[in-house]
Write a protein that binds this DNA or RNA. Structure first.
Lengths: 114, 114
DNA sequence: CAATATTATAAGCATATGATTATATACCGT
DNA sequence: ACGGTATATAATCATATGCTTATAATATTG
């Protein structure tokens, strides 16, 4: 089976980098590297308002760096980024924030159990 | 000899990505991948004003993605980006624009001969 | 030193960005 | 269908960004 990987244009390339050009969104990607998370969990960990998180996720989603799925009342985000050749390199270079997720679980606020 | 590579913080990481989050600056990086260039050559190739190019290069320089050296009356820019772990991956994924530089040479407007 | 060429900086302006508050939409349990 | 929880969108606002024009700074040449 032949897979055609569509070449990214300048516009899309710039959009991907812009999407990764914000500290909050970088932290979100770093968190999603460890585990898929829903919006309210990101809100809890990052200490941001819910609309702020939603809007950041929209930006990441429109750059195709994350994808979403609905699970009950939650919308769960996960890393995507197959279209961006160096996305894995970027994500790998992000600090490990798994301890944040551990802390969330310890506090009993982890809501989604896959 | 032990080389210590200073870990980049969120702030710097975001700045690097922001610096790469613009079509013009991506093109500049793509051009510098082929060959070191001075400002007036970038002006010629990209069809931008000289101040616009200078300001973009300042942004790239402050993110440490390019470095400059003076050669006579010209300031020559070249890729740097050793501090950004995935910089090479990004640059490698940029389209090849060497034909732009060839065209410049053919037109007799390549000013710097190293 | 004067004249020219190259590059950088400053100021102004239109648009983009990121946050906040308020409101709408979607799903769940009863 | 209703109330509660989760998420998205809209409106607003302060700041950032990118471009333009004008001007300054630096280097070369005569």
């Amino acid at each position: 089976m032949l897979m055609i990987v569509q070449e990214l244009g300048w516009e899309e390339l710039a959009e991907c980098n812009k999407a990764m050009g914000d500290q909050s969104r970088l932290r979100m990607l770093a968190l999603l590297k460890t585990e898929d998370l829903c919006v309210c969990e990101l809100v809890e960990i990052l200490g941001m308002t819910q609309p702020a998180v939603s809007q950041h996720m929209r930006r990441l989603k429109s750059a195709k760096l994350v994808k979403e799925r609905r699970q009950g009342q939650w919308v769960i985000y996960s890393l995507d980024g197959e279209r961006l050749p160096y996305f894995r390199s970027v994500v790998d270079s992000l600090p490990d924030l798994s301890y944040e997720i551990e802390a969330l679980k310890a506090s009993g606020k982890k809501v989604v159990c896959d």
